[in-house]
Structures are given as structure tokens and as C-alpha cells.
Design a protein around this nucleic acid. Structure first.
Lengths: 225, 225, 225, 225
DNA sequence: AATGAATGAGGATTCATTCAT
DNA sequence: TATGAATGAATCCTCATTCAT
């Protein structure tokens, strides 16, 4: 079975100054940025504010990041990494495999991260200003979709001829459900999320195999790869 | 049946200066703003840029709008009005009524507007910076959902006990589908949109009556209200 | 004895537009200006604010006043007229005449006006921005000083060779006492005012005749004029 | 006897940017601000004007001062420091101590500063727009009053039971005398100032001890503290 | 590697006044 | 006489970034 952290293969390959980061400081900067974003939104994030609160000279920010945009991007990258782990773990740990259980596990994992990394939601759902971030998140959604798609196909949950766009749409649409759920309720409206699971399941089951609907109990699974 | 423009009842009740607009100029300002937003995004929209391109002194902007935010809001209001008309018309014109036909008609109407009012998509999907706009759009989505929900319930397409959140989620999720579709293709990826229709239909049919699935031919409809 | 309103002989001799004022409106404008000044200070007084609150088009302000400055000036003129009346009345009504009784009567009269015309205090003490107003008030203080000086000299309270500057300084200094008194307490710190009377009396008595100190009872006065 | 600079104990404790001032530039900015204020008044002081004349980018102003208000405040602080020194020196240097000599020494010291720091007078007497400045100056007057009051009481010039408000009123009223004196004559009308001294002395002598009136020659003074 | 200082470019908004009607 | 509309000029201030040290 796939190892527990395959979704985001990208190791940081940023421009020069970023290479030799002084770990501690960089982490503090990201934490501060996350807080500020949660408090005031991405649009109001300023280098000065970060520097002041992180107790770092403004000019030093540019030792670790090429520009402001890169700070936000680094933040997103960090949080998304966490999300990847959660998803992979949750899916891996599943006993009975079915479209429903996979969707549910994935969405619960997302919820968990959104919940304790609020800045991520703020950036991703509300402040779509930063082009790099957008690209990155879109890209990530695609990766998640691809991962899940392959997983589900390999496991015999989806019919082999299913269009990959189906998975992508599922992920994107699930994302919007979260957006609605967290907008109404800071810790995620449970009722909305449950309905969202239903929604994604309803869609995907259109492309599911009978086993994908009925569920594959542990023990009787095809060996993958 | 409901008349052809019921979704947005709000008559413009802006602050004083906005009342006596010099129509022509205001329209030009909105057009320019729309262009600039399409080109650079809402976040980079500046009063100066609008004024310059619309060939209007910056100070005059404030004759027609209380502040920058209101310009964007007015723009959205204008476009959304158009959307409302399209939706109501499309649904009203339907011959056979079913969950599928209603969803399809609605989504096609949305697509039509997104297509020739690109600024609207940019604002609504990408730059979630403007609080007033956000509120307005959210509100609008709710209105659309409510309208469709009542329409479908009255027509006997949805089971009477269906939770209204279902319609809201359907609209929101459809919205995201458009976002994906227009992001990949400036005039809206047709394949994605088709899949999106499928997605929303799949979800809503879970709550549909048999007639809602099979379709109600013209002539045999219940008379509403 | 001098009639009850001699201090400010100036009849309004303003530029043309001011001549044909529509009384009612002008009064409302002045009242509104007074309120706004009391609330926000002269520096923050704006034509728009006046116009809005007085329910008069901004442009119409310029029918009655040449410019903003003139509005303030008219306001001051109006209030100062009231002050003159009060002073003349108070002094005229005096039974026993002495430096002390005259000073006291005058200062009490000032206090009365400052008390129910708060805008006047705000303009005169705090916002010394308006040149015309400054000139006007200075001028008025001189007139009051002159009036009192002549009154006191005629009544035999001050030695005939006394320098008129003495009276001017007395008035100015009394004015500052009020400023201090009203700054600490919106309705005028009584203790401070009492001390202020003492202060002015102490100074003026240096130039007083024995009768000016002892007091001239009613009946035994020299007939004036 | 008290050391020569006790009136204003406050060591500059401004917000961060002000800490590491580039001395020369800051001084130039203050000088320019002083000139502009002398020329056009505080109300018309603009950051742009300061920047232009000081040959400093507007943005740089904000390196040294938090905002415009702080520039004026710094200016006043600087001038007032000078005034404190002068007063303390003059009083300390006095040979014969009496109410009259102390008042005279103090007032002469004020005159000296007003004379070669004209901006100070303009700010303090004419443009009462800046709240921080007002607070500061009022506060300063109180400090001066307190200092002189204690000095005079300790020296046995005033009766021990004298109300401190007496000293405050003396200072305020003296201040107004200067205002009148400098308004009529840019270098301070000598006659008015002399009369002003007389005025303050007349008032304070009402609370003086016999020695405070007669004067205490050098050598026979009480040792203080 | 680290940073204090500097700044050009630009931000939104207000205001007193004018003028054509 | 009255006024709606228009506007030039100014306002204060912020920001991301650079650069000399």
C-alpha cells in the first residue's frame, strides 16, 4: 500500500536566500504570519506587522523569503503538508473500503486540519489575492484528487473507465462545502459537513463499481501495486 | 407561476450622492471598473485607475459612490441583476419539469452571465477582499437557493420534508463548479460544466420525488398559488 | 446714564450676498454651525456638515455668506452682541459702584453668556484658526475695555491719569481666567472664577481712587454725561 | 537650592522610530516646521510642506515621527525645555527674593524664549488645534506654577496656607499678557509686559508674607531642604 | 548573515468653491 | 434666487523593497 506521505513530493526549491534559513526564525515568522492572517486577512498582511510581531527586523525577512508573497506561500505549503499526512493516514487506516468510507475519511481529515490551522482557511477561501498561493492550492487539490482517484481505482471502488475530472470535481466541491461550513461556524458546521459528505458520495457513486458502493471488508482486498 | 424577476427585490437605496447619478458617467465608471478588475483583480483596483481610464476626476467618483467599496458593490449588483433575470426566465420557460431540467436550466443561465460578465467571476471567485460584496453574493446565493427550493417544492419535484440547506449546498457547489470551469478555460470548460450538472443532479435527486426524477410534462403540472 | 447696548455699534456691512439674507435660513445655519463647533471644534467645521445638518444645499451657503470664514464670523458677531447686552445691563443695574462691583458684574455677565453659548468659548479660546474671528474678538475686547474704562473713569472709580491699557489688560486677563475655568469644568469652575475676580480687582485697585475702592452708594453718584 | 533644570523631568520616551533619530535631519525637520508654523500657523502645517522645505521625502518623516502631530509636539517639547532652563536659571540667580523679583525674573525668562522661538508662541497662543500640544502646554504651565509655588512657599514669600490655584492662575494670566504683548508687537510690547508684571505681582502680593513683599536680601535666606 | 535607515510610489478620501442652469 | 453637479488641489499616511554598512 502507498506510504503515508506521498501527496506532496515537492521539496522546497526556492531562490537562494531561502536555502540557508535559520529554522527557528523562519518558523516564528510563519507562525506570526498565520496569526496575522487569521486576525486580519491576507490582504491586510504587511511585512512590517510580521516583522514587529516576530521581533525580527523587516529587512531580515528578505533573508529568508524573496518577497512577501513567498511568506504566504511557505505558510500554505507547511499547512498543506500537514493535511496530506492526515489524509494519507486516514485513508490508509480504513477498514472497510468503499466510496463512502474513503470520502468520509478524507473529508474528516480535511476538517481536522482546517480546524486547527485557521489561517489556511482564511487564505484559501477568502483572500484569493496571491497568485502563487492560488496556483499552489489548485495544484494541491489536483494532487489530492489524483491520489484518491488512483487509490479508489486500484481498490476497485471506481469503474476503470472513469474520467479523472470526476475526482477533481469531487475534491473542489468538497472544498466549497468546507468553506460554507466554516463560514457559518468557526469550527465547522457539522450538519453542513455531513450533507457535504452525502453530496460528494452521491456524485461519486454514479461512477462506482458495485463493490465501491457495497464496501470491501478488510481481508478480501486486492493487493495493490 | 412566479413572475420573471423575483430574486432580488432590493431597490437601490444608497447614500445620498448616489441618488442623482448622471447615468452615463456612472455606467462608464462601472464598465471601467469591471475591465480593471478583469485585468488585475479587485485587490489592485484603485480609484485613481478607475478615474483615469473613465476620464473622470477622482473626486467625481465620490459624487456617485460613497467609497471604493461601493463601486465594486454596484458592479456586482448590476451583474447579479442580470443573472437573476436569466435564471428566472430560463426556469420559467421550461417545458418538462424535473430536478435535472431545473438544475440544467439554472446552471446554463449562470454560465451565460459569467461568460459575458467576466469581472463578476473575478470578484466573486477570486478576490474575497470586499466585505460588502461578499455579504451581497452570499446573500444572493441564498436567495437563488430559496427561490429554486420553493419552486421545486411547489412543483412537487422535491420531497416536502427536504432540508432547505440542500438547495443552498447545491447552489454553492454549482458555483464552485463554475469556478473550476472558468479557471481552466476563459469561456467555461464545457466538459466540466456538464459534469457539474451531473454532480448537482446526483445530489438533489436523493431528495427528489419520483416525479422529480421522471419529469413532469407540460399540461400536467399542479397550478401554483 | 449710558443706554443698554452701546458696546458694539457695528451694523452688519458685509459683501453683497450677505445683504439680502433669508433670515430664517441664516439663523438655522448659524445655529447648526454653533452646534457643530461645540461638538467638533472650529477646525473640523465643514461646509458640507453645516449644509447637511441645516438641510440647505451647500451651494446655497454661498448665497448668504461669502465663504466659510464668514459663517464663523457671523456666529461670533451674534454671540458677542448678546454678551454686550448682558454686560451693559449688569453694569447699569449696579447699586453700589466700585472697582470690585463693576469687575464682578462684568465677569458674571460674561460667564452667563459663555455658559449658554458654548460655541463661542470653543471658537474664542480653542480654535484660533480664523483670522477674521481673531481680529473681531480682539477688537471686541478692546471695545469692552474702552467702555468699562470710560464708565469707571466717569464714575470716579479710577484715577483720571490711568493708562487705558490697564483696562485692556484687565479684560484680556479676565478672559484667560474664564478659559481656565471652563476648561476644567464645562459650566465654569466657580472657585477659579472667584479667584479670577480677585485677580482683576487686585490689579485694577492699584489704579483706583479711594472711592473706587470704598464704593459709591446709590444716590451719591456724579451724574454722567 | 533646587538644581537648574527640574521643571520638566520627562525624558523623551517616544515610539520606536523616534528612538534612533538621525539627529541632524530631525533637527532640520523641526526647524522647518517651526518656520512654517511661524509663517502660516499650525493649522496650515502640512507634511508635504515640511518635507519639501526640509528636503526630505515625506515618507522619511515617518521614520522619525509617528505622525504629524508628533512633529509639532516634538517642536513644543524642544522649545519648552529651553524655557524651563531659562526660568530655573533666572530664579536661581536671583539675589533679593520677593514676590516681585521672582515674578519679574520668571516673566523675563519667558519673554526671552518667546522672542527667539516665535513658532512656540504661534502654536501655543493661536492654533489650539493639536490636542497633544494643548495637553502638553497646559501640563507645562501647571508644572511651572507648581515649581514657582513651592519655591515661593519654601522661601517664605507666600503664606503657607495659600491655595496652589493662585500660582496656576498667575502663570496662565501672565501667559495671556505675553500673548497680548506679542500680538501687538512681534518682539513683545515692553509697556504691556511691564504692566503684566505689575498685574501678576498685584495679585500674588495678596497672598504674600510681609517678607514676600519687602524682599529677602541674600545671606539671610532660610536654607531649603 | 544581518539590519537600520531610507524612500518612491501610491493609497483613499475630503474640501471649499464654482458654475451652468 | 437657488442649486445639483463638478472638480482641482490637497490631505495624511502606508508599504514593499533596497542598500550601505
Amino acid at each position: 500500500m502507498t506510504p503515508a506521505r506521498p501527496l506532496n513530493g515537492s521539496t522546497s526549491r526556492r531562490r537562494l536566500p531561502t536555502q540557508h534559513r535559520s529554522r527557528e526564525r523562519v518558523e516564528r515568522i510563519l507562525d506570526v504570519a498565520a496569526d496575522l492572517i487569521t486576525e486580519h486577512g491576507v490582504a491586510d498582511l504587511s511585512t512590517r506587522a510580521i516583522a514587529t510581531r516576530a521581533d525580527v527586523p523587516v529587512a531580515s525577512l528578505y533573508q529568508y523569503f524573496a518577497d512577501k508573497e513567498e511568506i504566504v506561500l511557505a505558510l500554505v505549503e507547511r499547512d498543506i503538508g500537514e493535511m496530506d499526512e492526515q489524509v494519507a493516514q486516514a485513508v490508509t487506516a480504513l477498514e472497510t473500503l468503499s466510496v463512502r468510507t474513503v470520502v468520509e475519511a478524507t473529508m474528516r481529515a480535511f476538517v481536522a486540519v482546517y480546524h486547527h490551522r485557521p489561517a489556511f482557511g482564511v487564505i484559501w477561501w477568502h483572500d484569493r489575492t496571491n497568485a502563487a498561493v492560488m496556483r499552489f492550492c489548485r495544484q494541491h487539490n489536483k494532487q489530492v484528487a489524483k491520489y484518491l482517484f488512483e487509490f479508489a481505482t486500484n481498490a476497485g471502488l471506481l469503474r476503470p473507465d472513469t474520467d479523472p475530472i470526476v475526482a477533481e470535481l469531487g475534491v473542489e466541491v468538497g472544498d466549497r462545502v468546507f468553506q460554507v461550513a466554516f463560514e457559518q461556524n468557526l469550527s465547522g458546521d457539522k450538519h453542513v459537513i455531513d450533507e457535504g459528505v452525502e453530496l460528494v458520495v452521491a456524485y461519486l457513486e454514479r461512477y462506482a463499481t458495485p463493490a465501491g458502493i457495497a464496501g470491501i471488508p478488510p481481508g478480501s482486498r486486492r493487493v495493490e501495486e
